[in-house]
Design a protein around this nucleic acid. Sequence first.
DNA 1: GATGAATGAGATTTCATTCAT
DNA 2: CATGAATGAAATCTCATTCAT
Lengths: 219, 219, 219, 219
Amino acid sequence: MAQRSGDPTRVREKILKQAIEEFSRIGFEGARVDRIAERSRVSKNMLYYYFKSKEGLFIAALDRTYERLREQQKEISVRSNDPMMAMKQLVHHTFHAFESNPQAIRLMNEENKHRGKYLKKSGSIRYLYTPLVETIQFILERGRSDGVFRPSIDARLLYMTLSSLCYHYLSNQFTLEIALGRDLTSDKSRREWLEHVTNLVLLHCVTDPTAMMAADKKA
Amino acid sequence: MAQRSGDPTRVREKILKQAIEEFSRIGFEGARVDRIAERSRVSKNMLYYYFKSKEGLFIAALDRTYERLREQQKEISVRSNDPMMAMKQLVHHTFHAFESNPQAIRLMNEENKHRGKYLKKSGSIRYLYTPLVETIQFILERGRSDGVFRPSIDARLLYMTLSSLCYHYLSNQFTLEIALGRDLTSDKSRREWLEHVTNLVLLHCVTDPTAMMAADKKA
Amino acid sequence: MAQRSGDPTRVREKILKQAIEEFSRIGFEGARVDRIAERSRVSKNMLYYYFKSKEGLFIAALDRTYERLREQQKEISVRSNDPMMAMKQLVHHTFHAFESNPQAIRLMNEENKHRGKYLKKSGSIRYLYTPLVETIQFILERGRSDGVFRPSIDARLLYMTLSSLCYHYLSNQFTLEIALGRDLTSDKSRREWLEHVTNLVLLHCVTDPTAMMAADKKA
Amino acid sequence: MAQRSGDPTRVREKILKQAIEEFSRIGFEGARVDRIAERSRVSKNMLYYYFKSKEGLFIAALDRTYERLREQQKEISVRSNDPMMAMKQLVHHTFHAFESNPQAIRLMNEENKHRGKYLKKSGSIRYLYTPLVETIQFILERGRSDGVFRPSIDARLLYMTLSSLCYHYLSNQFTLEIALGRDLTSDKSRREWLEHVTNLVLLHCVTDPTAMMAADKKA
DNA sequence: GATGAATGAGATTTCATTCAT
DNA sequence: CATGAATGAAATCTCATTCAT
């Protein structure tokens, strides 16, 4: 039985992985410590040895998830010099970041359910959005100096806009699908939505939206 | 000892009220049947008598909540003849509907956590959004015939937009606040956000956004 | 399996009895809820149903034990009119009360181990000693008016004396036996000790100890 | 990483010190091996290496404690030539010995709770009281030859008396305080009690208690 | 000697649900 | 309709002890 895997950080990682899986799937109270232990092929007490309590494990799972999300957001390099193009890329990256991290969405919802209780204890997202807001800031400034963007755009407001539109589509998929009778997972639907979001954001930013719409039509 | 509290539907209502409270506060798995029974001052057996199981109670709670939300959405009469004004009212009403129903938000999140499992069993939101989408449709058409709105606007897409922007602000309040270091509950913040959302939506709808922005500036 | 014994107070009593047994035998931390449940032939959760927690059960056990002890102490009627005789009876009764309640001694020790933590929560012994102290008072007064007892005897001090001498012999039986190499459980040893204690107490009370000693010798 | 803290006996001592602390505070079953290890800043394995088991550690703690108590009792040199004075000193020394060793009291209670089980395995108190009884014997004899003490006093009985009266006051502090509504830790209370005990013991010993009482009154 | 990691058994407590009345 | 008592399974967490290095 003695499995003494030798590598303690690997054991920790295995547990953490399964914890993220479990907590994001069914929430804090729904999650079962037993299941996490079993799936990471570790005895229950090891889990307590490493994380002290279910809550400790949950916080560790949050920490790790947000950290990962932040890493991904840092990578959103805006390669294009064209501010409009850059903004478009930003929307796509943001959506994709959430899309490829369904667990992060679940865990954030969970956290909001708990009124931020655990986050306050962990402090890990405190700066989650910072890199993204900075990127937005950067694009906005370039757009402004190019004269294509209006000068008064608030980066944080824009971030909230972007975030709402990307997050909600994914987070509330099931209620939306049932209510609207529409499949939101199809490629077509996602493309359509992304295009719509991009359009909205740009409309908000550009100096001359009418011109932009005209240009769009031609394309 | 038999206390025969008189009105059976009243008992049912008391239970349901506490169930909505409990489920929305802490989710399906976090909710405790004992607590619901205790707080509605009803013996657990009554609860099982009326609702059969925890799941039955949860579904009943969902049903009731969505029904209430739908009622509220039906009431969104768009009094103004001016399509722009009407749209603005729509945004405000939608936000307010969510704002005054935090439990509905919580329960919808819960439902998405369960991948729509219970909704499928209940069918209660199937037509939740219909009246709202119809109202949107109506406003759009009037705006189009007035020449202020573009003809190609998709009502459902617009609804999703509206919904995302209003819902997310409230639903993800805690993570947003911590991450952005900003109080979202203040009147000022809410007004700002609503104005922003209105603007976005209108920008998307109007035929001549540039003119609209110019008009805005004067005002 | 359904044992539904019908009489809930009887179930409570059964549990309590076993709890007193277990807690007095091996202390709060040594006691096992499982064992108590098993021996009272009740499922573990019933125990929590009636007493809420291990601590709740412990406090209930203390309460009951002290109450019983107090009952016994109330019964110490001092039948004799002769104050010396009455005092002698008192010593015997006190010793016997402790002797026939080994569980009470154990539980009191346990409580002292916990620095009175649980007693403070229960308040049940607050008046444990009162009836006894009053009896002492009564005897002392009669002895004084008869002229055989000194007037300045403090009843509470006398109680502490009595109590120490009776309690310690029983409570520290094992260490005393091993240390002194003497069997303290034998009738002879107990008689001897009781006589000694009686003598001490009377010596302390009487106006003329020398006369008393002389009288003793004759007898 | 190997920290080789240098002196193995010192490590042993550190562990033992914390073990005495822990066992006396909360008893054998309440004590936690983890806590002892942590507080002595030693890995659990060391603890097992030195003491083999929790029980082994407990017995070692008992041994050490009794040994220390015995040392202290040996030191009770009765400096006075006056037997009455010597007896008074003895009472004070005994009380003080217990008072300055609350851990010893706790551990003795613990031992009695276990019906002497561990003492039998250790044999360390077997002769705990011997030096004290011998001292008592010595004083009694001198008092007898001086004519102030009665000839028939049993040293062991006297020891038990002394011990009961000093031990109980300290050991049952909490229940006594709550029951009698009296603070036993105050200097005044202790002085009073000690005087009372001394008096009792002397009354028991002297040839002419009436004379002694008269002498007391004058002083 | 010394350590961090691991174990297995078992501790207390909880919870949805049902039965007898 | 209504209740208090009961259940069984399982949840979280603990603890003395040992292994591999």
